[in-house]
Design a protein around this nucleic acid. Structure first.
Lengths: 343, 343
DNA sequence: AATCGAAATGACAGCGCTTTCATTTTGAAT
DNA sequence: ATTCAAAATGAAAGCGCTGTCATTTCGATT
């Protein structure tokens, strides 16, 4: 280690510096950025030249503090590595960015305590709205959100008791539908593969099991506390077959698990869908292109992000008008492909 | 649309509110958060009770403005949906979070203009350091980073002319090594599949082509301006075979492309590695578990994130000590698996 | 040339916190 | 009981910007 100079340790230029160089007051400089039409072209030019010369970058912290408008929206998702949230976030960004809002995203890694901390951190940045995943916030987190005074959206799943606005889909219903679909395809020894770290996966499983029992069948559920991944899918398939060699269908609570299970089947010479049918969840891009293509329960991830963003923008700009219904069900849809027999 | 009340529109509690309720001055409240050992236990208790009652959350904007310490680090990556950057970011978070720093992440979607804007936005938040991907910043972006006065790390790839600190690997060398590996496996009609949106992929290709020509072979390169994805891999395989039915090996510039190509081969009854060998890039988690398992050039993504974070923390806390060498090569490694013949 | 409203500009206070320095309180030592 | 350093607390200024309101400048009109 040696100690050479940082690239340039000098103080960053401020509004005042630009004003002095341009020979105007700092209010005028401020206006050049916020309401240029109020400034004469001559002054504007001088300010812009001065700003360029000083490589001036406005201090958003100061601006936000003074105007109490941060133009940011806080977002907490369970995972950044899961394709599901990528689609959601990218829709969010697409809609928000155009309106001059910026999303501050933190991940909770599927832990309620992390989520609580993330919410506190984000609220410290005074976002103009908050978006959280799911409906299982801790009591403290819920209270913080309520007290924050900003609009809150809970996404991805539905609840009867939303904090504020709720946009998502019913996971028990998805579980129910998945089971019906597999039954319709003629399966009878149906297993479920899941990662119970995800509260929504647990609720899907509940809908699934309920309907399974209603049909006089016994649930076969295999799970792991590890986060979902392709390799976990392969691993769980091994465990499943060791315990229940006669399964004829598997519903995987994520497409990654489905893909891993499919790879492991291929490795063992198990034919899909003839020996075992496989149904995924989410319908990620890879489902359609896999070989065999993977049947999956498609979730409206992009639409959830977009709807969330649109409603918030309407709320933030449009004089606080909120949707008539604070709970919006965006549904799901089963896409039948080659990894399941035809119904 | 109707216009019901937001959850609570009242002003958020401030330091002063807490102080008043606790019967102390606001400085004392501030100290309870920053240097609790300077406050008497009695006062501390009263402050904490008051803060809890008011659901007080410190305003980080104000704190940052007053102390000019934001405890944030700005990060720009090309894509949030790509597993490569997820590993990098998660290493970054793991190391930074423990030290009380928070990463503000923006994505450029592989566009230099977006990157420039993202850098400006992040600098507006006054981060204490900046991390950018690659070495192809626009002149303006480079100038902003230099002027910012904070440490800057360029990651993922190496350059002879870093802005400040540079941590990565040599992509031309990776291209060279990939070709050598395939040659050693006995391949002769070697194709390259890539998405030139990614500047690093272009440099890998250069290393690859140079060595190919040096061996008297003609480059077969198939590419698309779309971002990399599994389905793109399948699509490009179709195009490739239409133009060059006799290829015996394909190096895919991303594992997603490799997976897509593999699916498409399976669909067409092409055997891997017997008819065509496939080599990926990055060695994502799925390579090892795929069937057949995918050979890939492994990149030290996690290590890059961790090293970057550690060096920055050392720099920010440890009185500005910088690494002896401002350029750190973390290398790569070829993992031979079943999708290529044995060398 | 005088008048007047609109356009352009600036002075000043304040956003919620931290920093600095001064003051008060405490408790141990005489 | 005094003394004095250490511990605890507070008053005031200021971080860089914006909001508000007052003032100046300008061009058009009579």
């Amino acid at each position: 280690m040696n100690t050479h100079e940082p690239p340039s340790r000098r103080r960053r230029a401020t509004l005042g510096d630009v004003a002095r160089l341009a020979g105007v007051s700092s209010v005028t400089v401020s206006r050049v950025y916020r309401e240029p039409q109020l400034v004469s072209p001559a002054a504007r030019d001088r300010v812009e030249a001065a700003a360029a010369e000083l490589a001036y970058i406005p201090n958003r912290l100061a601006a936000a503090l003074a105007s109490s408008q941060t133009h940011t929206i806080g977002v907490v998702v369970p995972s950044l590595t899961n394709g599901v949230f990528n689609d959601f976030l990218s829709a969010l960004h697409n809609t928000l960015l155009g309106a001059g809002f910026q999303a501050l995203v933190l991940d909770s890694r599927y832990l309620a305590a992390n989520e609580e901390r993330a919410i506190a951190t984000l609220l410290g940045h005074h976002p103009e709205a908050m978006i959280v995943t799911g409906v299982d916030q801790t009591a403290t987190a819920r209270r913080m959100l309520e007290q924050s005074g900003v609009p809150v959206v809970q996404t991805m799943e539905l609840t009867d008791d939303p904090i504020d606005i709720n946009i998502g889909l019913s996971h028990p219903a998805a579980g129910y539908a998945a089971l019906r679909f597999l039954l319709d395809c003629g399966a009878r020894r149906i297993a479920h593969m899941m990662a119970p770290l995800d509260a929504r996966a647990v609720r899907r499983r509940e809908g699934f099991e309920r309907e399974l029992r209603a049909n006089g069948l016994d649930p076969i559920v295999i799970h792991s506390t590890k986060p979902t991944s392709v390799s976990l899918g392969a691993e769980l398939l091994g465990e499943l077959l060791a315990a229940h060699p006669d399964v004829d269908a598997i519903w995987c609570s994520s497409d990654y698990l489905a893909l891993g299970a499919m790879f492991e089947c291929a490795r063992r010479g198990i034919r899909i869908p003839d020996d075992i049918a496989i149904l995924g969840f989410n319908d990620l891009e890879l489902c359609a292109v896999a070989h065999p293509s993977i049947s999956s329960v498609a979730t409206p991830r992009y639409e959830m992000g977009q709807t969330t963003a649109e409603i918030l923008l309407e709320l933030l700009r449009g004089s606080g008008r909120r949707p008539a219904d604070r709970r919006i069900d965006l549904g799901f849809e089963i896409r039948a492909r080659d990894s399941t027999r035809r119904p």
